[in-house]
Design a protein around this nucleic acid. Sequence first.
RNA 1: GCCCCUGUGGCGAAAUGGUAGACGCAUUCGACUCAAAAUCGAACGCCGAGAGGCAUGCUGGUUCGAGUCCGGCCAGGGGCACCA
Length: 843
Amino acid sequence: MASRFNPLKADAAWQKAWEENRTFAARDDSPKPKSYVLEMFPYPSGRIHMGHVRNYTMGDVLARFRRMKGMEVLHPMGWDAFGMPAENAAMEKKVHPGAWTRQNIATMKAQLKRLGFALDWTREIATCEPDYYGQEQSLFLDLYEAGLVYRKESAVNWDPVDMTVLANEQVIDGRGWRSGALVERRKLNQWFLKITDFADDLLEGLQGLEHWPDKVKLMQENWIGKSEGLQFTWSLSNGEGLTVYTTRPDTIFGASFVAIAADHPIAQQLAAGNPEVQAFIERCKQGGTTAAELETQEKLGWNTGLTAQHPFDANWQVPVYIANFVLMDYGTGAVFGVPAHDQRDFEFATKYALPIRRVVSEGDKTAAEFDGSEAYTGPGTLVNSHFLDGLDVAEAKREVIRRAEEGNWGTGSTVWRLRDWGVSRQRYWGTPIPIIHCEDCGPVGVPKDQLPVTLPEDVSFDVPGNPLDRHATWKHVDCPKCGKPARRETDTLDTFVDSSWYFLRFASQPSDQPFDKAVAEQWLPVGQYIGGVEHAILHLLYARFFTRALRHIGRIDVAEPFAGLFTQGMVTHASYYQLEEHDGLERKLYFEPTQVSFRADGSAYLTDTGAEVTVGRVEKMSKSKKNTVDPTEIVDQYGADATRWFVLSDSPPERDLEWSESGIEGAWRFVNRLWRLFDGLENAEGEDKDLDRKLHRTIAGVAEDIEALTFNKAVAKLYELTAAIEKAKPSASRTAAIRALVRIVAPMVPHIAEEAWAALGETGMIADAAWPEVDPALLIDDEVTIAVQVNGKLRDTLVMPKGAAKDIVEAAALASDKIVRSLEGKAPRKIIVVPDRLVNIVA
RNA sequence: GCCCCUGUGGCGAAAUGGUAGACGCAUUCGACUCAAAAUCGAACGCCGAGAGGCAUGCUGGUUCGAGUCCGGCCAGGGGCACCA
């Protein structure tokens, strides 16, 4: 045996051996129990960063561990390859998005391979390849056929200078990121998937997800947002009816105005003959489409002069406003305002001097005159509300709904916060939507024998906008139904569609269909899905929906795609930037951590030029903020095992981790300590009971920690075991412990484990070896340390035989000198004994 | 603005409501060495000579006992439907 471990040599040798033996290729026909371990596939942004290393190492340890436990493991990898950054690169660097993306994939694949992940590369997928997105187009057509796809108008961020649609990320402080123009909301006809058809099912389904974090289920529940409400119609002074939705029908007597969206038909009607209304409506369209922006912008209203008649009082009229905070997309595009009990309405009423009338009591406050400085949204009893007085909020809601239905002017209905999923993107680098628009036939699906609809290669990104739309020939096709000249849909699909079924394609990838039902069902659902917590809502909800939709059309008998979910914390890092002025507007120009140096006072400058840079927030590593850290240097210097061990150590995986390299030296030291143990293996005689116990407790504990993905605890246990072995005198126990240690550390540091396995003369590869057996008899202690407290404060500890009777423990505690001293002669009033743990004497 | 999460030594952290700080990093001292590296041993929350006291963001509560449960704050992070 060589006396020093050479990670660079060992890494390369074993990675080659695994590849040549196809060690990690999952067999569909294996008789072993199957396990599907999946990490969220990466966007090929350029190079991998520490967040990727953390994510994929966690999944890898679990995959390798389950193999050792005798399972057939599917652990695949692919690329979420469509997306905006490729088009940005095309604009900035004059490269084709496809070329840029494929180059990034090649780079990142090599980086992943360098870390020795137990991945089945035979199933690799890139969503930007026609054999993937063509199958996606076929699924889209199936969903269209089933009525789960439809078209409607919806708002986008419009840059009036570049004449293009902007993503939310491209809107900075209300302006287009390139043009600097004030962004406005504009309506486009777009494709939608009917996720709301499954709202109830998606909500109910959360109940059964036992192996999902509670916080994710809670976030999804809130996102879906089921609430019971009332839809009813106000009679307007112009004789028309105005239908509103409310989740607070109980506050009906607190109404002081009705507000409609700027694009509500009634508002449009008023604008037709009134330039002032028209101007106001234009003003409402300013700004982007995000909820954060809409909810924090200044509340604007326009009194239409119309009034609405209160449903319970023919003599009570409230004014009708057009307001910028009412959205046509939600409910009916009209609401009634109750200033005393809704903060937004409160601000609006304060601004426009509308009455604020209390109808829900707050403690002993019951006067109709509202005296608060903000709306009261808590529980209470109804007041100033005629027949509702004295009821609580829930009772009052039911009563109003009952009367509305009885009087035939409204209906109780379930309201969902969840909206249908808009999947149209006015961009090139995505899956073409397989639809042809015909003047006579309307939208017609591309016949399946003409799939895939591939992206044209000859496109330019010299001007803003969608290259598909201005391509000379691509969109001109004949209608598949009537044969007349027609127009191909030039929008592409949201990349979240690509990531909503990739786990099915990993399980089965025939060339003639998206996946084989029977084969996919052998692997699904994914046993353990691991990815960043930032995907807690959108990606995970879309994937859950898409799987249900596929079940609905009979493609698969699985409702929930991910049985187990683990959301890892993000790897964060400070960002560095300079403020740059451009056409009178300030913007941030970001720099990579490697470009920056620091002075003693913490201030930062560019290493090359000495120019000052601002140290920004500590936030998740992302390409756009350039605050990523590339693992290459670390892997080159310390090897894959030390790098893997390092990212598993210390920080609990669900918690965010601010990146720091301090500690990598410790990981490297540990790898070398292991090697010294493996290298110095002696064949000694004799038993070491304490070491046997330590070993078996570690085998059991590490197994538990790996399944629970609490790797930091597994690492701590392995440090303890290693220290114990190092200190132990030679014995048969010690020899056995070292041989077992090779296997226990194998999932985490597989290269050194293979090297040691071979050197110790074991047969085959450790990747195929079994996890060591635990002797349950060795898990039990015969002695325990019992804490003795007086009034809850620790005063002494006792070593007692395990399972000692309560009275014996109590007597021993009272006999202790320290306890006698602490009691100062006071008589115990009460003694609490927790078996094998503690005694608390209350005096 | 709304939803979710996090907060413990110099740092990363551990702790079924039951001995707060396991394990690692850094630091200091010692051994080995001509020397250095590597390695090994020891110390290491704060105050105090000691006995002991004080400590888990702040604050109030429940409990024999709270880092852990509940209420109110503060700070940081994530998501908010076109970043992925």
